[in-house]
Amino acid sequence: METDAHTSLAARLRQIPYWLVMTVFLGLLLLWSILTSQNYHVIFTAIAAGMWVTLYVSLIAFALSILLGLLIGLARVSAQRWVREVASFYVEIIRGVPMLVILYYIAFVGAPGLVDGINLLGKALQGVGLGILGDPLAGLSLRGLDFTMRSVIALTVGYSAFISEIFRAGIESIERGQVEAARSLGMSYWQAMRYVILPQAVRRVLPPLGNDFIAMLKDSSLVSVLGVQDITLLGKVYSASTFRFFETYNVVAYLYLAMTIALSLFVRYLEKRSPAAGHGGGSQRLR
Rank of each mutant, 00 (worst) to 15 (best):
V91E: 01
P208V: 00
L142A: 13
A111E: 08
F246Y: 15
T242D: 02
M187L: 10
I60H: 05
G122H: 01
P275Y: 00
A5H: 06
V115C: 14
I197Y: 05
L286Y: 07
Y269Q: 02
Q229W: 12
M187N: 05
M1T: 06
D116W: 15
L140M: 14
S78W: 05
A49C: 08
L31Q: 13
V251A: 11
M259D: 02
M216D: 03
I34C: 11
L20G: 04
A49H: 10
L226T: 05
F213W: 07
I106S: 00
R244N: 13
A46W: 11
H41A: 11
L125G: 12
L121T: 14
R150S: 00
E271N: 08
M99I: 14
G113K: 04
P199C: 03
A277P: 03
A10R: 06
L265D: 00
A276V: 10
V57E: 03
D135A: 12
N250K: 07
A10E: 08
F147A: 02
V21T: 13
D146V: 13
V109C: 03
R12G: 12
R143E: 15
P207H: 06
R12N: 07
Y56T: 06
G210R: 00
E247C: 14
S264K: 02
G144H: 14
R176F: 11
K123Q: 13
Y238K: 03
P98E: 07
I214D: 02
M259S: 07
G134D: 03
S160P: 04
S239V: 09
R143M: 15
E247F: 14
F243V: 05
I174M: 01
A192S: 15
Y269E: 03
K272E: 09
A75P: 02
S184R: 09
K123C: 07
A161Q: 06
M193K: 02
A154P: 04
M1Y: 12
V225M: 14
E2V: 10
Y18W: 14
L13N: 07
T3C: 02
E175K: 06
R268F: 14
S33Y: 15
F243H: 11
I118E: 01
Y18F: 11
L265I: 00
K272Q: 14
L26Y: 08
L55P: 12
I132G: 14
A253L: 11
G170E: 07
L198E: 10
N39L: 15
A192H: 12
N250M: 15
V53P: 01
D219V: 04
G27Y: 09
A138N: 10
G110R: 01
A107D: 08
L217Q: 00
D219S: 12
R285N: 06
L133Q: 06
E172G: 00
I166Q: 04
M187H: 10
T148F: 01
S264N: 08
Q15E: 12
R12S: 15
A10N: 11
Y269F: 06
L234E: 05
P199Y: 05
F44M: 04
S151D: 01
A63E: 15
I118P: 09
A46F: 07
F243P: 12
L59E: 08
L74E: 04
R183W: 15
A75M: 05
V101H: 09
V86H: 01
A276L: 09
